[in-house]
Design a binder for these strands. Structure first.
Length: 261
DNA sequence: AACACGATCAACCGCCAATAA
DNA sequence: TTTATTGGCGGTTGATCGTGT
């Protein structure tokens, strides 16, 4: 089977995201969730591949992302977890609310450099053979990895604490993993804000019509009615009401259109 | 002020596992 | 069972920023 590359289509943008692109992505996901990353950019009016959109959202635009330097406690958690988990950045990130695997990965590489410099030795912290085998087997059996990571004795700091009260710990532990995915795909499915039928049986032409935040007036009233509100989507957003933060500033929704302060 | 260098981090790439058809 | 598609992960790259000379 030959896998079609997701990013080699001509016309797809690469590189740094512009504020406008961020705005579109935020607006779309805020409103509709991420039902399909591959198709999402088309309907969101973005000339990006789905992977790129997903990455941007997961690593940067999610409202529960914690920016800024890692605290001493977080550093300690990373170091401890790395000892037991190895380079399983996503698993480590799952224990650090608001931190992304990319961020932790970057931190670790920086840490390794600092440490190797400090010790004036060439060997940076490396995976033991047991770590490696554990890692490899976990990659082979993802679901087991999820379970095993949930069993670790290290302090459990679930992102669930930032999720809606309805989110049970079992939900999270079954997907430690991806609280982000929970956040994202379950916007709709679990928040009971938007009827799931809406997605199961979309309004005619809906999924075939590009989404433009600017043109949201064109949607029928009955469709606009069950829109997600920021609190139900991002129950732990530091910003209340109709506002939420993103990397480029404070956004708020006005007449169902995302505005930048 | 200008340049070189290193650090940081956002983003891309390629692979794998899960799942659907 | 096989094939195709998608999501997710870790490794890596490269642009940008800060600092030192």
């Amino acid at each position: 089977m030959v896998r079609t590359p997701c990013c080699d289509e001509t016309g797809l943008r690469k590189g740094t995201w512009s504020p406008e692109e961020d705005r579109k992505l935020i607006a779309y996901i805020t409103r509709y969730g991420c039902w399909n990353w591959r198709q999402l950019p088309k309907y969101a009016g973005l000339s990006r591949c789905g992977k790129s959109c997903r990455l941007r959202w997961m690593n940067y635009l999610r409202p529960d992302i914690k920016r800024g330097n890692l605290s001493k406690e977080e550093e300690g958690v990373i170091i401890n977890l790395h000892e037991s988990l190895g380079n399983r950045w996503s698993a480590i990130a799952a224990r650090l609310p608001g931190r992304t695997d990319n961020e932790i990965k970057n931190y670790w590489h920086t840490y390794i450099k600092k440490r190797s410099k400090k010790n004036s030795i060439s060997h940076a912290p490396e995976l033991s053979s047991s770590d490696l085998s554990q890692y490899k087997s976990s990659r082979g059996k993802k679901s087991e990895a999820n379970n095993s990571s949930a069993d670790l004795s290290s302090p459990q700091i679930f992102e669930s604490s930032q999720l809606s009260p309805q989110s049970s710990s079992s939900e999270i532990s079954s997907s430690t993993i991806d609280s982000t995915a929970v956040n994202c795909t379950n916007f709709v499915a679990e928040n009971d804000v938007v009827p799931s039928e809406l997605f199961a049986e979309p309004i005619e032409n809906f999924w075939t019509e590009p989404f433009w935040a600017e043109n949201s007036d064109s949607f029928p009233d009955d469709f606009m009615a069950p829109l997600l509100d920021s609190q139900s989507i991002f129950p732990c957003s530091p910003v209340t009401g109709e506002e939420f933060l993103c990397s480029y500033g404070l956004y708020y929704e006005h007449n169902n259109v995302l505005m930048n302060w």
